[in-house]
């Protein structure tokens, strides 16, 4: 199918990009990897009148650690994360996600930041960013600001990015040696969005109790959600199967999925619960704590 016609802008600098966005307001859309936008345009579900292609912007492809944060520039592709040895060894949650987003070919183009900006109710990166307590860097005419992921993700397909702004970076805290995570996703086949998925991250105290926990679930509500009560239950406790069961059970209270071809609301809720449980068990196992 053929997208509707649009005006194409190819800024060569961030300033130029921002000025295009400012000029055209909500008629303009950032074009990053295009892996969500272009299919939507082919179905004419999206018909932006101006596209601002950011792919030629310099210095947005960085992926490195700095001040305890993994900084992911707006042009970092999923595969950059997937193939990165440092990420594979240290950032278990992110590494897991990078292998199950979309399909291997789509991942060569799709960007982490673009996925977060898209805030698809079934997006994988959003759940991971929630669990890992990521931050977003947003650039506008008058400079940049940093927001927590919870502030950034506003509603389905909506973020806190304002008119004339774009996201330039996502930041994930660098896990210490007592931190691990996991991503558990049920999909009907490769390339499908999640039926349900859960991102978890756990930081242990040296005494083996849980210092901090992050739980994000996706595809089971209007957008990816933080399982706050589940996190609260875990914090400060010694990990046991009963505790994990109880934390996972919290999912049921906040998940509110739409029934569709991927499953009934009941099924999706139950899967989110199972996946949170499995994620926690896996993350703990990665920290050499066996609970099951």
């Amino acid at each position: 199918m053929i997208p509707a016609a649009f005006e194409y802008k190819r800024p060569m600098s961030l300033e130029e990009a921002i000025s295009h966005l400012a000029e055209h307001g909500y008629d303009a859309r950032v074009l990053a990897g295009g892996q969500s936008l272009i299919p939507a345009m082919r179905y004419r579900l999206a018909q932006p009148s101006v596209l601002v292609d950011i792919n030629k912007l310099p210095n947005l492809g960085y992926l490195h650690e700095e001040n305890g944060m993994l900084r992911i520039g707006a042009l970092v592709r999923d595969t950059d994360v997937e193939f990165n040895k440092n990420i594979q060894s240290k950032y278990h949650l992110i590494s897991d996600v990078s292998m199950v987003v979309a399909d291997p070919i789509v991942r060569f183009r799709g960007t982490v930041v673009g996925s977060l900006c898209h805030n698809d109710p079934s997006g994988d990166w959003a759940a991971a960013a929630i669990a890992a307590r990521a931050q977003m860097v947003i650039q506008g005419k008058n400079g940049s600001r940093v927001e927590s992921i919870d502030q950034f993700l506003v509603d389905s397909f909506a973020t806190s990015i304002g008119e004339g702004e774009m996201a330039v970076e996502a930041r994930f805290p660098t896990p210490n040696s007592l931190t691990s995570g996991a991503y558990e996703k049920i999909e009907r086949k490769v390339g499908d969005y999640a039926t349900a998925a859960a991102a978890v991250q756990i930081e242990l105290n040296p005494d083996g109790t849980i210092k901090e926990a992050g739980i994000g679930i996706t595809a089971v509500a209007h957008m990816a959600l933080r399982v706050v009560e589940g996190e609260n239950l875990l914090r400060g406790q010694k990990p046991t199967l009963e505790l994990i069961r109880a934390a996972a059970e919290e999912v049921r209270k906040i998940a509110d999925p739409n029934p569709d071809a991927r499953g009934s609301a009941e099924y999706k809720k139950d899967m989110a619960r199972v996946l949170v449980g499995r994620g926690l068990i896996k993350a703990l196992r990665r920290l050499n704590v066996v609970v099951a």
Partner: peptide, 13 residues
């Protein structure tokens, strides 16, 4: 080194 779905990229890109 990168594979792309050429239906999911505009020629100008």
């Amino acid at each position: 080194k990168t594979a792309v779905k050429s239906c999911t990229m505009f020629a100008v890109m």
